[in-house]
Design a protein around this nucleic acid. Sequence first.
DNA 1: GATCCACAGGAAATAGTGGCTT
DNA 2: AAGCCACTATTTCCTGTGGATC
Length: 407
Amino acid sequence: MFDFDETGNILRNDDALKDTCDPDKLPEREDELKEIRSALAPVTRGSTPENMLIYGPAGQGKTVGTNLVLESLEKHVEESLETSLDVVYVNCADLTSSYQVSGELLKEISPERDTRPRGHGASNIYDMIFDRFDELSEYVTVVLDEVDSIGDDDTILYQLSRAEQNNEVEDTRLSVIGISNDLNFHESISERAGDTLQPEEILFTAYNAKQLNAILRRRADRGLYDGSYDEGVIQLCGAFAAQRNGSARQAIRLLYKSARTAHDRGEETITEGHVREAQEVIERDILLEGLRELTTQQYAAVLAIASLEAKNQTPARTKVVYREYKNIAESAGIDVVTTRSIRENLQAMDLYNFLNTERKTGGTRGGERLVFELAHDLEQMLSIEVDGKFSGVVDTIQTRAESEGTL
DNA sequence: GATCCACAGGAAATAGTGGCTT
DNA sequence: AAGCCACTATTTCCTGTGGATC
């Protein structure tokens, strides 16, 4: 039976402490929001707003801030300007090309579609998009969140930003807002952009510890009972997040997790110990989530490094890793792919932060070498069950690590 | 100091999947 | 049903790099 004991002294309102709960104001971002407003302001004078590229690390209020400004603009347009504005929001995470984004956008604005179209030529998709735009409001603003995931192929941005000049749309005033977590993305765009796409660039710098504390205090004020936490808890949450990447989302998640840990134990107050504990759990969850998304081959490559780490043989060169990988793949009964492919996978694992890669020049034979090692605790990596096929392999590594004392 | 080795990584080809139009 | 079209994972082939070797 489940024993509901919800009479704690800590949590008052869970929702206020969830990172899915969007605030209705962002005092720490007033300057940036002002810039966004200014770029959208032409609407109030009957013109097309500026295109924008908003960039900065994750968890800095880029998406929330953009939505806040757009919402108030929508309202203003409807109430005072006798016309209307549609905001089309597309999250491009997991979309790896402009083609996919255009498909997702089409799906978003076509009520009859519930899957992304495939099998069309790219220009077909754009035609369908522009046709739909003409049926929407006079003003259409497309928000492409996490656009950086499309990589180098940025044709979608050009198509959308040029549509009006090229008369692809007849009576729609179209603008694009790209939101990017990748600081390099705007460079690669401006390099090739030439004169067609000249977005207003708005930078959200990472929150510092002081700003994170202020954000956390507001959340705690609404979500926690007075006296169940002290300033030290807030500051520790802020400090952890500031250290990592200044993400407000992470900071809030940490505070919430700490509060729940304390609550579940029936304690009176949240302590710094709870925060540290929650931080560990969160890190493990992030790792787990990431590992689950790997392909079989990628996971095998990570295990090869883990296996070498158990034998104290990391950092290891590609060639050595490949030998280890081959054994693992054979005993797990999966296809063995070539070195070329494993090298590619290993480097992808570095991008996902499972491995650390170093470039070394000048081995025994010269040329460039890559050496890899785990980016996380071996013990932590092994404690996560990802794919049953590898359970035997994981056990072997575990045993080896114990006898080598590398855990 | 030319040549060689062993690796990095680009480019193109291939194979399999699956939606879409006609 | 046939024929597109695009995607993904992989292989094959090839060029580049730079210390070691003779």
